[in-house]
């Protein structure tokens, strides 16, 4: 067992890393919103699910790929991947903003406490997942393969697969852009200000509703990118993946310390790796249990996350 594990260590690690980056991007959807509103955006998991379908639709219906068609190459390949990525991000971003408008904004105005937005969010997730279930006849949807999954190199014994490489590189670019946006721009400054103290920011003339919308938009964009990467890696989607991946990504956010971007990064990577190693030993059917166990242990022992800064207790 251990020998096998060492043999496969690097290929598991690469798989785990690319899964980790998918988690990071979804976790950002939770963590950005949490940072500003101190609220768990439960519906983010279903935003991710919808984004995977957007990717499938672009590849299958817009570019007319089927299970038997030839792989795209060169410029055409990058065009297809680019449109699919942008489309998923756009769909997820807009959906996220709409969810905030419809399901959360009114509750925020009413000061309705912690539970009401959460229940409303669960309702939204239910509506989105069920709509997709009815539209897809409760069946998983396979995505045609547009890109050949060739090996582009070796690292020790492990083959480096093209799709994993694309995911890791693209995710790093997106994260860099996000960090630049939050740390360098005026809007990013506004987001940080609201996250620190909403009342003072309001007095300073920051449009809180606008900032909240932008936060949901950015979180949605990141989650949408995760949807695209997921389809690229696993080549299928289903109405039920939102729940599965959503809980894992939420665990990642908690693990790293919810509310800050770095936390999502470390948490996502650790969880992606941990989960991949754990399913090697225990079998994939216990994957969800591993994730929940990690979640419970972290919340119980270190509720601020392993790498996170302490969240202020007063403004919650």
């Amino acid at each position: 067992m251990i020998g096998n594990f060492l043999d496969q260590f690097w290929s598991l690690t690469f798989g785990g890393l690319s899964l980790g980056f998918i988690y990071i991007l979804i976790a950002l959807g939770y963590t950005m919103v949490y940072g500003v509103l101190r609220m768990i955006n439960f519906a983010n998991s279903e935003v991710f699910m919808i984004a995977t379908f957007a990717t499938v639709i672009i590849i299958r219906d817009v570019y007319n790929f089927t299970q038997t068609s030839e792989y795209a190459t060169g410029f055409k390949l990058w065009l297809i991947l680019g449109t699919a990525l942008l489309a998923s991000m756009a769909v997820a971003g807009i959906l996220s903003v709409l969810i905030e408008l419809i399901a959360y904004r009114r509750l925020r105005r009413m000061n309705s406490g912690v539970l009401a937005p959460l229940i409303s969010a669960i309702g939204v997730s239910m509506v989105l997942a069920e709509t997709m279930r009815i539209l897809t006849d409760s069946r998983p949807v396979a995505s045609p393969r547009a890109m050949e999954k060739k090996f582009i190199g070796k690292f020790f014994d492990a083959d480096i697969r093209l799709d994993n490489t694309i995911i890791i590189v693209a995710a790093i670019i997106l994260l860099t852009l996000l960090l630049a946006f939050v740390n360098r721009t005026r809007l990013g400054k506004a987001i940080r200000a609201v996250s620190m103290n909403p009342n003072a920011s309001k007095l300073m003339g920051i449009n809180i509703d606008g900032v909240v919308s932008i936060t949901f938009l950015v979180g949605g964009l990141m989650t949408g990118a995760a949807g695209f990467f997921y389809v690229l890696k696993y080549e299928n989607s289903s109405f039920s993946i939102g729940f599965e991946l959503g809980i894992a990504a939420f665990t990642a956010a908690i693990l790293g310390g919810i509310g800050n971007i770095k936390g999502a990064f470390y948490g996502g990577l650790s969880l992606g790796l941990l989960e991949t190693y754990a399913s090697f030993f225990l079998g994939t059917q216990w994957k969800a249990v591993t994730v929940f166990t990690i979640l419970v242990v972290v919340l119980y022992t270190k509720p601020n996350g392993l790498f996170g800064e302490a969240l202020t207790q007063t403004r919650a």
Partner: peptide, 19 residues
């Protein structure tokens, strides 16, 4: 057929309009 869909809607609507 759409039982859960309706239940989800119920949650959202009740929370927003008649919590």
């Amino acid at each position: 057929d759409a039982r859960l869909l309706v239940f989800g809607l119920v949650l959202v609507i009740m929370m927003n309009l008649r919590p």
